[in-house]
Amino acid sequence: MKMFEIQPGEYARVRSLEAEGNIRRRLLDLGLVPGTLVQNIRRSPLGDPTLYAIRGAMIALRKEEAGLVNVDKEER
């Protein structure tokens, strides 16, 4: 599944990125390397962007960005 499909409160682990160049770099810089645990904290009132907990920081990502990240759902 894609990262934007994680529901509020749920966790998933990053499997791969479907991005190249600067966007890929930016996602990696935010800590989205394969194996990273991410949690959907909440969606903004309009549904986009979504706030995620990534490696100890809260980071808002738009659907286009979270759509570039393949994740596996993780039960916690």
Partner: peptide, 11 residues
């Protein structure tokens, strides 16, 4: 750096 999430600061 933030000592609560050291790893994230290393980039």
């Amino acid at each position: 750096g933030d000592a609560t999430c050291l790893e994230r600061n290393l980039n």
